[in-house]
Design a binder for these strands. Sequence first.
DNA 1: TATGCCGGGTG
DNA 2: CACCCGGCATA
Length: 305
Amino acid sequence: MALPLKDACVTRATHNSMKVMFKCLWKNCGKVLSTAAGIQRHIRTVHLGRNCDSECSDGEEDFYYTEIKLNTDSVADGLSSLSPVSPSVLSPPPPPTSDPRHSDMNGAKTESSTTPLSRSAPSTLYLVHTDHAYQVPSFATVTERTHIRTPATAPVTIPSSTNFTPSSCSSFSISWQSPPVTFTGTSASPTHSRTQSFGEQRPQSIAVLSSPPRASGSLRKSRGEGKKCRKVYGMENRDMWCTACRWKKACQSITPTDPYPPTSYFPPPSPGMSWNFLRCARGSRAAQLLSSPAVGAPFGSGAAN
DNA sequence: TATGCCGGGTG
DNA sequence: CACCCGGCATA
Ligand SMILES: [Zn+2]
């Protein structure tokens, strides 16, 4: 709902009604170009620090295009349902075990997202991701309190070389963002890492790593995007916040791109586990433990056993 | 400034 | 362990 990208896209679409364009979704960047080649080159040179030489124009390198249908009117909905760069927890790109359900969901969403809204001139938006998203090694050692989250989604993959022809009013967006330091200790299953497995985990043991964070230092975490309890209910109704929010912890009830069922979310991140324990877990391989229990049913509704 | 939330504190 | 807050990163 508060995706910068979304806004930008919306604006663009509205202003340049029926116009194809590409927008760099790089963290702080927001460059908008009218050509795929242009945006891709921009990404390479500016963000990748690479000097495009030859086939940088075609840019069919490794850009992932995510199609999004938006309405000039209610584009927000269409986009929000997709949340391309949302830092929420959807499906980790690299890990093979990334919820197939979600991955597919993107595609499905893409279509049905605007179904009830299709009335005016629906625009199509393409988000492009690149393979460049270097994935931090297995256990990314974040020296600072870098918060990691699962971001992007690996949805539709359209070779930019396809020279697709934008139907009518279409808006394109190129998204190229750095990877979200997915820890993936060794046995952590991303499947359930959606609810609480996230967070920062730094195996103190490791001191030397290969590719430390770079990319204009953007592994900062970018704070949760979706409106959290606080913003929704306000300080006035603090008692309505989820426990986590009340305790100034990571909100666990309101998620941007992963609307959980109206189930009563339990306070702690995991049933039978407290924040305190969690903290201990963090910083050690205990993180693994967190990943083991309650896999099938993340937010085990209170009944842990 | 407002918000999200980690790390630390208290009973 | 439930609960809260300082303080920081971020928007
Ligand atoms: Zn909350």
